[in-house]
Amino acid sequence: MPDDVAPPNKPIALHFGAGNIGRGFIGALLADSGYHVIFSDVNQAVVDALNHEHAYRVDVLDQQEFTKTIKDVEAVKSESQDVVRDLAHPNTRIVTTAVGVTILQKIAPTIANGLQERRRVSAPPFNVVACENMVNQTEILKDHVYKHLPEEHHAWADEHVGFANCSVDRIVPGGRLDEEHPLDVGVEAFFEWVVHKPALRAPIDPVVQSMVLTDKLDAYIERKLFTLNCGHAATAYLGHLRGHHTIDRAIADPEVARIVRGGLEESGAALVRRHGFNKEEHAQYIDRIIDRFKNPKLSDRLERVGKQPVRKLGRQDRLLGPTYMAREYELPIDNLARIIAAAFLFDVKDDEESVQLIEKVQKVGVEDAVAEMTGFKTGTDEHRKVVEGYHQLQSKK
C-alpha cells in the first residue's frame, strides 16, 4: 500500500471483486464516503489498471446522464499476501464483497488468514459485509471463513468481527467495455444498500453515504429479492423466448410485461402478508421497479440477467422463494409458475447452467425435471401449473 496513495490515517475499505458492480456500486459509495478503497480481484489486467490510474469514471445512466470520477483507489491480486496485509491493517474499517455467491468460499481462506493476522497485531474491531444477491449472504461467507479459521480464534472473531447481512440494489449492466477506458462503468441512478445493524461489531465510520442500518433486514431482503430480482429474471426468461435481447426491449413487449407484472403482484401479495408492508406503497414499489427496467440507456442484455438459472431456481431465491411464500398463504401463483417455466426454456449455449437445465429436461422429461429442481411434487397444483406453463411457452417459441 504506497504511502502516496493511502494517507497513514485515512480509513481503508477492502473490497473483494473489481467487476462492474464492485466499481460501479459498492466501491464507488465507499470512496465517495471518505474511504481509501483497495480492490481485490483475480483479473491481473484490472488490478494493474487500478494501480496505474488510481481512479475511474462512473457514468450514471439516468434521463439526464452525468459522470462521477471515483478517486483514491488501488488494487491487489486476490489470494495474495497483500490481501492478508491489508485486511490486518489497523485502518481497515470494513471489508465488502461483490464476487458472486459461488466465489465466497474461494476468498474465505484468505479472509481467515487476514483475521488471524489482525488478531496478532491487535487491530481494532471491524465489519465484513458480503454484497451478493442472496439471502443471508454474509452469514454464508462467515461459515466458509470459520471453516478455515482455527477454533481458538473463533471467540475472538465473534467479538471483534461483525459479519452483517445486507440487501443491495442497483442495476449495473455489462457490455459497455471501452477499450481505451476499461475501468469506466455505467450504472442506473437508483441504488439501495441496507445493512443489519445488530450484527455490526464497530460503527460504520465514516458513515457510508445512503447506507441504511436496520434491525429488520429480512423484510428489506425479501422485498428486493422477490420484486427487483424476481422481475429482472422474469423479464429475461420471458423476453428471451419472445426473441428480445435487452431488458428494456423485453419489458416493452405487452405479453412479457403482463406476466412480469402479474408475477410481481402475486409476490407482492405474499410480501404484504408476511411483513406487513402497506399494500398501496408496495404497489408503487412494483411500479418503480418496472419503470427501472424500461430505461433504454441501461441496455442490459437478457443473457447476463438470466444467466445461471439453476442458482436462480434455488429454494429461497428470486423465483421459488416468492412462490413458496405465496402458497404458504394460499395465494395465487399462476404468473409466478409461468415465470418458473420460462427458466426451464432459457437456452443460452455459453451459459453452463442453462445447458445443464435444458439437458436435464431432455434426459428425464419436463415433469421429473420440474419436480427435482423446484421441490413441487408431481400431482400438486404447483407442479401442474409449472409444467402446463412450460408446454404453453414452448408451443409459442
Rank of each mutant, 00 (worst) to 15 (best):
I94G: 08
D381W: 04
A236T: 07
H391Q: 11
K106M: 08
V194R: 10
Q63V: 13
R301T: 13
Y146C: 08
G175Q: 04
P254S: 07
L149D: 01
P124I: 02
P296F: 03
F344G: 04
D184K: 07
E65R: 15
L302N: 02
H232E: 07
R315Q: 08
V370P: 05
A342Y: 00
L177P: 01
E139I: 00
P332D: 14
P182S: 07
K349D: 12
S395H: 06
L61I: 04
Q362H: 15
N133F: 03
T102V: 09
H144N: 15
R318S: 03
V101Y: 11
A55T: 12
G263S: 12
E152G: 00
L61V: 02
D351F: 05
E266T: 04
D3L: 15
D4A: 06
V212A: 03
E280H: 14
K312W: 10
G365M: 06
V60A: 06
R119K: 14
R23E: 03
L87S: 02
I26V: 15
R249C: 04
H240Q: 10
R119E: 06
Y35W: 05
I290T: 10
A13I: 08
L241W: 01
A75N: 03
N43I: 15
L213V: 00
Q316V: 10
R338V: 12
D169R: 06
L241R: 02
A6K: 08
D205T: 09
E180I: 04
P124E: 00
V60Y: 10
G239D: 08
A88V: 03
F346Y: 14
L320W: 09
R223F: 11
Q284G: 11
I290V: 14
P11F: 00
A270R: 09
F277Y: 14
V168M: 12
Q209D: 13
A270T: 11
H52W: 05
P206T: 01
T138E: 13
G262T: 07
V46A: 13
P124Q: 09
V364W: 05
V161H: 01
A49Q: 12
T69F: 11
S210Y: 07
T227H: 08
Q308I: 02
V207G: 04
D178V: 03
S40T: 06
N127C: 07
A234V: 07
P150E: 12
N91F: 00
R85K: 13
V185S: 09
N20I: 00
